[in-house]
Design a protein around this nucleic acid. Structure first.
Lengths: 112, 112
DNA sequence: TGAATACTGTTCCATAAGGCTAAGTATCAC
DNA sequence: GTGATACTTAGCCTTATGGAACAGTATTCA
């Protein structure tokens, strides 16, 4: 269903919905079944399932069915992609600050 | 235009688009005008402006117009909201790991 | 076996997102 | 003051998203 050229598209898209972030928060405390996860939400099950699919499609959770129960668990490793993007971004600011600092420093040297 | 109950909705929504992430990467190296930012993209200006508005609406960038030129700059502080969410999420896993560890430890103690 | 449980599949609907073109406004350079 | 530049506004189109209802399948329990 989902087809993202960059995995980050799907990851951030999945995180953009409060229902899905709430599910992740719940799963952070340990695995749970679909029904358990759905219980707090005033939403029909098929609608809720779409959120589960969005989360699974982005790789933020993985699910597994045993009997009639599907159990969901968080995929912690997927969050590394977010961290990676964040540090790339920070590196840019940092590099910019460094260059600025370098400029200021070399300017000060010329002053002498 | 945007109306999100939780700021994270808008932030993650903004990050979910590759064009917008590219703009942020560009702005990480320093402020730029709309035209400069738009240049690399094969897209009509009004379309590109929507991305700028999405970024500004989420608070990830701020813009300012002088004369006929609007200059955009990254709002680094906004990224703290993402960091905060990430650490909350990590804290959940961590707490769970701790509890698990505690359980294992106390189980080992009973073994003795 | 029959009923209840736990999803799953399908279809529909309203709104939002992301693209376009065309026309408008405000500066700036001459 | 005229023309070019740099957005802006408005409206249109197509697809995606987030919700619903309803019917179906597969397990489990009694």
């Amino acid at each position: 269903m989902e087809q993202y050229s960059d995995p980050l598209d799907g990851i951030f898209q999945a995180l953009a919905d409060p229902t899905r972030r709430a599910v992740l928060a719940r799963l952070g405390r340990g695995p749970a079944s679909i029904s358990d996860l759905a219980a707090p939400f005033d939403m029909a099950l098929p609608s809720f399932m779409k959120h589960i699919h969005a989360l699974e499609g982005s790789g933020l959770i993985r699910t597994q069915k045993q009997g009639r129960v599907r159990t969901c668990a968080i995929e912690e490793s997927r969050f590394a992609a977010i961290e990676a993007w964040m540090s790339t971004q920070r590196a840019l600011w940092q590099g910019r600050t460094d260059r600025l600092e370098q400029f200021v420093t070399s300017a000060e040297n010329k002053e002498k």
